[in-house]
């Protein structure tokens, strides 16, 4: 038991990231509101970024921007996750922008962003 608790404390960021990821996933699957789905997607992505960022950190080191100390390898944390997170954030911003634009169009056309009502309205439209 204490082993498990130690493992969880040891990996607290990963555990948080996993919980957030599943919260995002569940909301994305179950929310009927389109805007909330976009929010859920952002939670999911942020959780992944948290996971990624926590992987590169080493206790007692600083961000990988070289200062007076020069290129002393043991002074700086791993720069790769930071770069990947940067890329990932930009991608998720773009996707959010696209989905929000789509939702704006849907709202202008149907006057609602609830998935259930939308499905009903489109069914009527087809008939």
């Amino acid at each position: 038991m204490t082993g498990l608790i130690n493992a969880i404390i040891d990996n607290r960021y990963a555990v948080t990231a996993v919980l957030l990821f599943v919260i995002g996933l569940a909301n994305m699957l179950l929310q009927p509101n389109l805007i909330k789905k976009v929010v859920a997607f952002n939670i999911m992505d942020s959780a992944t970024f948290l996971m990624l960022a926590s992987r590169g950190f080493v206790e007692g080191r600083v961000a990988a921007v070289l200062t007076d100390g020069g290129a002393d390898v043991s002074r700086y944390v791993n720069p790769i996750p930071a770069g990947l997170v940067l890329t990932g954030i930009v991608v998720s911003v773009s996707v959010s922008a696209f989905s929000l634009a789509l939702i704006q169009r849907i709202y202008a056309r149907y006057g609602t962003v609830e998935l259930g009502e939308l499905l009903k309205l489109t069914k009527k439209e087809k008939v």
Binding site: L4, A7, I8, D10, N11, R12, Y13, A14, V15, A17, V18, S54, F57, V58, E59
Partner: peptide, 8 residues
Amino acid sequence: AAALPGFG
């Protein structure tokens, strides 16, 4: 997550 290599 608990099985991953330790944080930091």
